[in-house]
Design a protein around this nucleic acid. Structure first.
Length: 303
DNA sequence: CGCCAGGTGCTGA
DNA sequence: TCAGCACATGGC
């Protein structure tokens, strides 16, 4: 089985830290896809083991997705400026910011606003089932020969951990062709028109995702904010998780709680908090945010 | 059941 | 810039 060297990495922490919504754990394996190519991965010590089935992914693709090419030590050292963040780093060292597809990240975080993670995952799954491409799970022991059954375009034995078929994340065009009514039927609620408008903006070329990869954080954020349903927080999530803008610092309800640990001031505006955090943590503020976010949520969950 | 969720857009000071 | 409010829906 192929193996990648993965020092300073925690697969479990990375995949459960609320930055990605489509990975599923089964046994020691995590099942998911990178740009629509399905695989499973697991970690043993500082090794990342993966299996591709028939997916055309290179070791470099996987290394890049999990950000294993990033030297984490200096990053963590640069944000380790006080006892709060220090504690989070000690607890969750190895948490990395994934390099996710920018469109999938944008659509996902439009749906994530004022919502809970379980439901976000369900909404995204429904969206994929309705508008993505089906990937049938190839049975490893199935008998070959005779007429090949009408086979779907895509197959992969790691398409799903459990049963039926898995689905790729839909292209913007597919959602753009839909309607608000159909999207509401998926349970997207008031986010349905936001997602539709955003998908149309991308499909029409008014939000050129590929070109935006080359612009700086400020310009990128400005472009993202032009989308309906994208405010400061969503734009920062997309910049951080989908565009490698590590200075982005998304401020949500959990960051407000983190802020109370620091200042005891009960009400600080999200804008002020954003400025304060970026000044405090610097060019890798986004990493600080993700460690603080995971730390306080984990603490709340375990009591 | 009531409260909460990785907020945003809009309105009116 | 800021505060206050409506917005859909399901998890717990």
């Amino acid at each position: 089985m192929p193996v990648l060297k993965a020092p300073d990495f925690s697969l479990q922490t990375t995949l459960t830290s609320g930055q990605t919504f489509r990975w599923h754990a089964q046994g020691s394996w995590w099942y998911g896809n990178i740009d629509g190519r399905f695989l499973r991965v697991r970690q043993e010590g500082d090794q990342l083991i993966y299996e591709l089935g028939e997916s055309r992914l290179s070791a470099g693709d996987i290394r890049r997705y999990f950000a294993l090419d990033l030297d984490l030590g200096p990053v963590l050292k640069s944000i380790d400026v006080d006892p709060q963040i220090h504690q989070a780093i000690e607890r969750y060292r190895g948490l990395r910011i994934l390099r996710q597809d920018s469109w999938e990240t944008l659509a996902s975080f439009v749906l994530a606003s004022f919502n809970n993670i379980k439901r976000i995952e369900g909404m995204i799954e429904g969206l994929c089932q309705s508008y993505g491409d089906a990937v049938e799970r190839r049975q490893p022991g199935s008998v070959q020969g005779g007429q090949a059954p009408a086979r779907p375009a895509l197959r992969n034995c790691f398409a799903l951990a459990g049963g039926a078929a898995a689905f790729t994340f839909p292209k913007p065009q597919r959602i753009a062709e839909s309607s608000e009514r159909k999207l509401r039927q998926l349970g997207l609620g008031y986010r349905a028109p936001y997602l539709l408008a955003t998908a149309r903006r991308v499909a029409d070329g008014n939000l050129p995702m590929k070109q935006l990869r080359r612009v700086n954080y400020e310009k990128l954020k400005g472009a993202l904010l032009a989308c309906e349903g994208v405010g400061d927080k969503v734009a920062d999530c997309v910049a951080l998780f989908g565009f490698e803008k590590y200075e982005a610092f998304p401020v949500d309800i959990w960051m407000e709680r983190v802020a109370r640990r620091y200042t005891r001031v009960h009400s600080i505006s999200r804008k002020r908090l954003h400025v304060w955090a970026r000044n405090r943590f610097g060019q890798y503020a986004g990493y600080a945010q993700q460690y603080l976010y995971h730390d306080i949520r984990s603490e709340r969950a375990s009591g």
